[in-house]
Computed example of a mutant assay.
Amino acid sequence: MTLQMTIAAPFRNMGRNRLKKSEIVFYLAIDRHWMNREQAEKVISMADAEGLIRKEGDYFSIPEEFSKIDIPLGYKPSSEIFEKKDPVESLAAAIAEKNGIEINAVISEMNALMEDEFDGNLLPEAAIVILAREYGVGFEEYLDELKKSIGKID
């Protein structure tokens, strides 16, 4: 949610639906002093890659639902917005949260499934989806990222 809040902030503060890249960078780096210019440009690139922002010619816009995000008074993004989140860990955390168990237990169960049931012939991405189904946790929102992470395997 932090990246969503960070990218929504300039639009909300300026009360506009469309902003130029330079206006977003100015807001993040110069007006708010949240980061330097390179980091502000990286935030825009990350938001674009995750589909949180759309480019329309020289302008960027955010989805309508982002304009309703509550940005707390005194909000300042942490450095964790620059960290790429592992989709396997994210889905494991969702399973753990929904079922009231520790994430380590979910990871252990995933590892046991990969080794015991499939003799090490199952990728973590597939194993976590199997566990999500067993625990009744929706995994559809994670599928694109899981597929991308599988594509990185040589």
Score class of each variant (00 low, 15 high):
residue 89 E to I: 12
residue 64 E to D: 11
residue 138 G to F: 02
residue 106 V to G: 13
residue 150 I to V: 14
residue 57 G to E: 03
residue 39 Q to K: 15
residue 106 V to Q: 14
residue 80 E to V: 13
residue 126 A to M: 06
residue 8 A to Y: 14
residue 20 K to P: 08
residue 58 D to K: 07
residue 137 V to D: 01
residue 132 A to V: 04
residue 7 I to T: 01
residue 76 K to L: 00
residue 32 R to A: 05
residue 75 Y to S: 03
residue 59 Y to K: 14
residue 134 E to L: 11
residue 52 L to A: 03
residue 3 L to Y: 00
residue 149 S to R: 15
residue 111 N to V: 05
residue 17 N to W: 09
residue 22 S to V: 08
residue 117 E to T: 08
residue 80 E to G: 09
residue 72 P to Q: 01
residue 150 I to Q: 14
residue 134 E to Q: 12
residue 74 G to H: 00
residue 26 F to L: 08
residue 17 N to P: 00
residue 65 E to F: 11
residue 22 S to C: 03
residue 66 F to Q: 13
residue 43 V to C: 11
residue 142 Y to M: 10
residue 47 A to H: 03
residue 87 P to G: 14
residue 123 L to D: 06
residue 67 S to K: 11
residue 47 A to R: 03
residue 129 V to Y: 03
residue 5 M to E: 13
residue 42 K to T: 15
residue 50 E to G: 02
residue 120 G to N: 05
residue 93 A to R: 15
residue 15 G to H: 05
residue 100 G to T: 06
residue 31 D to W: 03
residue 116 D to M: 08
residue 30 I to D: 12
residue 54 R to N: 09
residue 72 P to V: 01
residue 141 E to W: 00
residue 64 E to H: 10
residue 127 A to F: 09
residue 101 I to A: 06
residue 69 I to V: 09
residue 32 R to E: 15
residue 29 A to L: 10
residue 42 K to A: 12
